[in-house]
Amino acid sequence: MSSSDIFIGETIGTAVLILLGGGVCAAVTLKASKARAAGWLAIAFGWGFAVMTAVYISAPLSGAHLNPAVTLALAIKDDDYSNLATYWGGQLLGAMIGAVLVWVTYYGQFLAHLTDSEIVGVPEEKVAKAVEAEEPGAGPVLGVFSTGPEIRNAVQNLATEIIGTVVLILAILTQGLNNNGDGLGVLGALITSFVVVGIGLSLGGPTGYAINPARDLGPRIVHALLPLPNKGGSDWSYAWIPVVGPLIGGAIAAGIYNVAFA
């Protein structure tokens, strides 16, 4: 496959992934959404179906990596780093496009949510919080765009992301991604989508299971740039964990695969 096919396929596929995955987070979170408060089960299955849809769409062009950790693991497994930057660039761009599309789709709901005094507080309270915090933490809609910990412990949070990513990458490497980089087959895409659901249900509680650097970083950048009223901070002090953790997890999974399965 050509570099242009890889870049286009990853951009389109990751945009669809974030549109549908971020979309379910918006649906469950935002005021005036018909799915508000649908719960963690809806989010886990929504992300699983997002993965399945994105893989089916992008596989013919790029092999449907859709995740820098997957691309890194395959590069280590095959000792071929020639297309690493092309995959990563398409993934990050696609994630940002998908996040913008979530904002467009739920534009009215974002406004309703972020102008509700019960959610964002009164102006005096916001000023006091801004003075207290040198670097604003997560704002009231950041969870629509990116992940965050329930308990802020850098070691635990990093370990959680590493462990979840190792499970994901091992599941991918052992059931469908071949040495030619042609990607997951039809059955492999379905299996992977349910693996993502399983990771979300079993391991997603502590951090929200990014398990994908582009999935977290791209939308976090968009959150920081979008003209959302009262949106709060983008929690950049935490942002390195859902990037570094999955990359470490991908490298570990590739090492396990090469030792145990190759």
Rank of each mutant, 00 (worst) to 15 (best):
N180K: 12
W240A: 09
E125S: 15
V195N: 09
S3T: 04
R220S: 11
G232K: 01
D78T: 15
A171D: 13
P149S: 12
V55C: 05
V186G: 11
K34H: 13
Q156P: 04
G90L: 00
V144G: 02
Q175P: 00
I162W: 00
L92Q: 07
N83Q: 08
L177D: 10
V102H: 02
G249V: 03
N180W: 12
S193I: 07
V127C: 06
A59M: 13
A154I: 07
T14D: 10
N153C: 11
D78R: 14
L142I: 09
F45E: 08
A64P: 04
T115R: 15
A38W: 12
L158S: 14
L203V: 10
L170W: 09
K129D: 10
R36C: 10
R220K: 12
V102W: 01
P123Y: 00
C25L: 15
W88T: 05
F145P: 00
T160M: 13
L84M: 07
A38T: 13
G205E: 07
D216G: 04
I8V: 15
D116P: 14
A254R: 11
V51N: 01
L93R: 01
D182Q: 13
G46I: 01
G98T: 06
D79F: 12
D78V: 15
I252S: 08
A75D: 09
A171P: 09
L142S: 08
N83E: 03
A251P: 05
P246D: 05
I248F: 06
K126I: 10
D216P: 03
G204N: 01
L173G: 09
P68D: 01
I76S: 08
V131L: 09
L84W: 03
E134G: 12
T86G: 02
S234H: 07
L74N: 06
T53Y: 15
P242E: 11
T174F: 08
G255Q: 06
V144W: 00
D5Q: 12
T11W: 01
L173N: 07
V122Y: 08
F261P: 15
L93K: 00
A50T: 02
F110Y: 10
A128R: 11
G46P: 02
A73P: 02
F45N: 09
S193Y: 11
L66W: 01
N178R: 13
A35R: 13
L158W: 10
N157I: 01
Y87N: 04
M52Q: 11
L93P: 00
F45I: 14
G245K: 01
I18L: 15
G250C: 08
W103E: 08
I97D: 09
F7P: 00
G204W: 00
A38P: 04
I191T: 07
Y257K: 12
V244E: 02
L201T: 05
A95G: 15
G200T: 04
I169T: 03
L247V: 04
G23N: 02
G21Q: 00
G137R: 03
